[in-house]
Simulated assay, not measured.
Amino acid sequence: AADHHWLALACELAAQCPASDTAFSVGAVVVAADGTELARGHSREGGDPVVHAEEAALAKTDPADPRLPGATVYSSLEPCARRASRPAPCARLILDAGVRRVVTAWREPDTFVAAADGGGVLADGGAQVVVLPEHEDAAKAPNHHLLT
């Protein structure tokens, strides 16, 4: 039940993103094992045209927070495995933060990156990746213009 609650919130955050023709609208929430919300973020937050949701949320956490290794990142879209706008993709940022569990609604399509596999990068780095496809429609809704 908690996974569904937090992933639904991530999908709601995606709807807050300024629209873009060159990037997906994504929401993310970092939640400690005890259910405490540590941070949230969304794509293009704060007027930064290239910030990703997971990046925005993780930037609001204390890297020394001992709760991060037991935390879960909820992201409306699979965290990126490659990106041109920053040196580190979101899958790497999540692993570097020590987070080892990610719940997502939707695997990244090949719209902007061919053979995107953030879930594979996360799994290879020791993270558990859970996909809840029943939230996929909500994750896709703010990105409808990119999918038609």
Rank of each mutant, 00 (worst) to 15 (best):
A8H: 10
A28R: 00
H144G: 13
A64H: 13
L13K: 07
K140Y: 02
V73C: 12
R101G: 02
T22D: 15
D110M: 02
G119N: 09
T148V: 11
N143F: 07
G126C: 08
Q16L: 11
W106P: 01
A91Q: 00
T61D: 05
P87Y: 07
S85A: 15
T111G: 05
G70N: 02
P66E: 07
P49E: 03
V103Q: 02
L77A: 09
A14L: 03
G35Y: 01
T22R: 13
L38C: 04
V26L: 08
G35V: 01
W6F: 13
H52C: 06
D3V: 06
D124T: 07
A2M: 15
P49R: 01
T61W: 02
P18Y: 03
Q128A: 14
H42L: 07
R82C: 13
A57R: 00
G119F: 02
G70D: 05
A2F: 09
P79Q: 10
L38V: 07
L9V: 09
R100Q: 03
D3G: 12
E108Y: 10
P69R: 12
P89R: 07
G126V: 02
S20I: 05
A123R: 12
A1V: 14
L147E: 15
A1H: 14
V121I: 11
A123K: 05
H52T: 09
A2P: 12
V102W: 07
L147R: 15
H4I: 10
W106Q: 07
D65A: 14
W6E: 09
V99F: 08
G125E: 01
V73P: 12
P133V: 03
P69C: 12
G70C: 05
D124Q: 14
V121Q: 06
C17L: 01
A57I: 01
G125I: 00
A139F: 00
R83T: 08
C11K: 01
A28C: 04
C90N: 12
H42I: 06
A123D: 04
F24Y: 09
K60L: 09
K60V: 00
C17G: 06
